[in-house]
């Protein structure tokens, strides 16, 4: 049914964490994903790139339980999570910072962060982790009592990431964290992501900015009209002529 995936180069060995096999998603009559397979290892940062409408957001939504898969299998640490709902995946270590940030503008910055830790019972540790988030993004501390809706776009993105981290995830799903941000802010956010990833948190990153994403990631997948067409280590993809032509505008 689908073309074979073109694989460039060797993948570094990570213990498996997330495995997606033959994932299909449909919106009514529209088939958005036609059998996507991918893996994310423990401590690995994986980038998912592709043109508008390729199905990147749909993939993340199905993985985090926001969308029901119409076919395929998703496993987290060997356990089948295909039919679990979003709120059931959070206690299993899933955090999803959705497309468009998904902050709660009617709540304050601190309340948004507290919601990130909604299921955690270790209150003292949550406060410490919140301080850690404030060290990563000091501007959030200044704005802590403000309604999140009054933050700038970049600040909202920082809040979305800080909030996702407060659930103590083992897998962080990020949908276009650089969208609409100044290069400097994007820089800060990616530096933070690498730091977080270095502490052992796995990341599945969706980006329009393929250069940025592939540079940061250990491994990458290229999605085209609902199918994975190419995969390989970040650097290998960056060097491939197809990727350079299609996604780096060369």
């Amino acid at each position: 049914m689908s073309e074979p995936v073109k694989v460039l180069g060797e993948r570094r060995a990570f213990a498996p964490l997330l495995t997606v096999e033959g994932l299909q998603v449909r919106y009514g009559a529209i088939q958005a994903l036609r059998g996507v397979s991918l893996q994310v290892g423990k401590g690995e940062m994986v980038a998912l790139i592709g043109a508008n409408g390729a199905g990147k957001t749909s993939t993340l939504r199905a993985v985090s339980g926001m969308l029901k898969a119409s076919a395929g299998r998703i496993t987290l640490e060997g356990k089948d999570t295909t039919s679990l709902k979003a709120h059931q995946l959070v206690p299993r270590g899933m955090a999803h910072a959705p497309e468009g940030r998904g902050i709660f503008p009617n709540l304050t910055v601190v309340e948004n962060l507290e919601l990130g830790a909604y299921l955690r019972k270790d209150t003292a540790q949550v406060l410490q982790d919140m301080e850690k988030g404030f060290t990563l993004f000091p501007v959030l501390k200044e704005r802590r009592r403000q309604l999140a809706g009054t933050l700038s776009g970049g600040e909202q993105q920082m809040l979305a990431i800080a909030r996702a981290l407060l659930s103590k995830p083992q897998l962080l799903l990020l949908d276009e964290p650089s969208l609409g941000l100044a290069p400097q802010v994007t820089e800060t956010i990616f530096r933070t992501l690498r730091e977080v990833n270095a502490t052992g948190v796995s990341v599945l990153l969706v980006e329009q900015n393929a250069h940025l994403a592939l540079n940061a990631a250990h491994y990458g997948y290229v999605l085209e009209t609902g199918e994975v067409v190419m995969a390989g280590p970040g650097k290998a993809l960056l060097d491939s002529p197809e990727v350079r032509r299609a996604y780096l505008g060369e």
């Binding site: 709120h87 959070v90 955090a95 959705p98 998904g102 009617n106 709540l107």
Partner: peptide, 12 residues
């Protein structure tokens, strides 16, 4: 109240 889909992502 703001968005129940995003709220579910918090584990709510």
């Amino acid at each position: 109240s703001w968005d129940h889909r995003t709220a579910a992502l918090m584990g709510i």
